[in-house]
Simulated scan of single mutants.
Amino acid sequence: MPSPAVDDYLKTIYHHTEWQSARITPSQLAAELGLAPSSVTEMVQKLAAQGLVTHRPYGPIALSDAGEKRAAAIIRRHRLIETWLVSEFGYAWDEVHDEAEVLEHAISDRLLEGIDERLGRPRFDPHGDAIPDASGHVDRAPFVLLAQAPAGHVGRVLRVSDRDPELLRAVEAAGVSVGAVVTVADAATLRLDEVDVALPAAAGDAVWLSA
């Protein structure tokens, strides 16, 4: 049965391995959700019993095929809504996350399909995150985190994390957007249109470039 709590767990597990390969641990999951470890342990056991995750005591957590499909479906909703809010209602990219968190549980499948069609079947949301298609499939180019990119690396900005709205505003104010082609000077400086652009130090762990 649909459950916002279950969906939040599955989304968080899904997010954790979208842009890196290490599986999430119970303690990391508790920190991400802002919950007590004991509560997370209990819920993970329930998810495992429902066949949505695979987990052994004290080990990392992975989505099962069924869990991956369900997580992709709710993430598809969230990211289509974010894209819709920016495209149709003039929201800024730092304003859409909380709205989408509410609406993703409220809209019907029919309305979601209408939004997807109206937007032209977008593949990425305003932050550069891939929007799963109706079957859960995503297209994602090879990538490198800004903090790990060597000086002189030339790449296209693929994604900016939406975790910190203030950081999103700072990146936007610097003139850096998803799709921009940049050259890395260091983990906090990009060359854009032959001009060096300084970013907050946190951008090194929040900006992904094409590899």
Rank of each mutant, 00 (worst) to 15 (best):
V138T: 15
D125S: 13
G120C: 05
I107Y: 03
E172C: 04
G155W: 00
S87P: 09
V144C: 10
G179I: 02
A72D: 09
E166K: 10
G128D: 06
E99R: 14
V144G: 08
A62N: 10
H137P: 06
R118Y: 12
R123S: 14
L85S: 01
Y58C: 12
D139I: 14
D65E: 15
V154P: 02
G136S: 13
G120H: 06
H127G: 05
F124W: 07
L103Y: 06
T83V: 10
L145D: 05
A71W: 00
A62G: 12
P142I: 03
A134K: 13
W84K: 05
A66M: 08
G152S: 07
G67C: 04
A170N: 04
V102Q: 11
S87Q: 14
A173Q: 14
G128R: 01
V160N: 01
P126F: 03
R140A: 14
P122D: 06
G90T: 07
S177A: 15
V176Y: 05
R140Q: 15
P150S: 05
D133T: 12
L80Q: 03
A106C: 14
D133Q: 07
Y91V: 02
Y91E: 07
P165D: 04
E88L: 13
A151L: 04
D65T: 14
L167Y: 00
L85N: 02
T54V: 14
G90H: 05
V102T: 13
D129R: 14
A92V: 07
H153N: 07
V102Y: 08
S64L: 07
T54R: 12
Q148V: 05
L146Y: 03
R140N: 10
V96C: 03
R156N: 05
L85W: 02
S161I: 08
L145T: 11
A71C: 06
L145Y: 06
A72L: 08
A147M: 09
G175S: 11
G179Y: 02
P165T: 08
S108T: 15
E166Q: 12
D94C: 10
H127F: 13
P165V: 02
A72I: 06
Y58K: 13
G128N: 08
H127L: 15
A141M: 11
T83M: 12
V96Y: 00
A174V: 08
D94F: 09
A62W: 03
A130V: 07
V86R: 01
Y91Q: 09
F89S: 11
I131T: 02
V160W: 00
E166G: 11
I107C: 02
E88G: 13
E166T: 12
E82I: 03
E104I: 02
A130M: 10
R56L: 15
V171G: 00
V154G: 11
I61R: 01
I131R: 00
L111D: 13
D65K: 10
H127P: 03
I74S: 03
A100W: 01
D94E: 14
I61K: 01
A141G: 09
W93K: 07
G175D: 08
A134H: 12
I107V: 15
I61V: 15
P60Q: 07
H78L: 10
L119R: 03
V144M: 13
P57V: 06
H78R: 13
H55D: 05
P122E: 07
H55C: 08
P165N: 04
L168K: 01
G128P: 08
D94R: 05
D139A: 15
R169L: 02
E166A: 15
S135M: 12
V102N: 10
G175A: 08
A180F: 04
D65I: 09
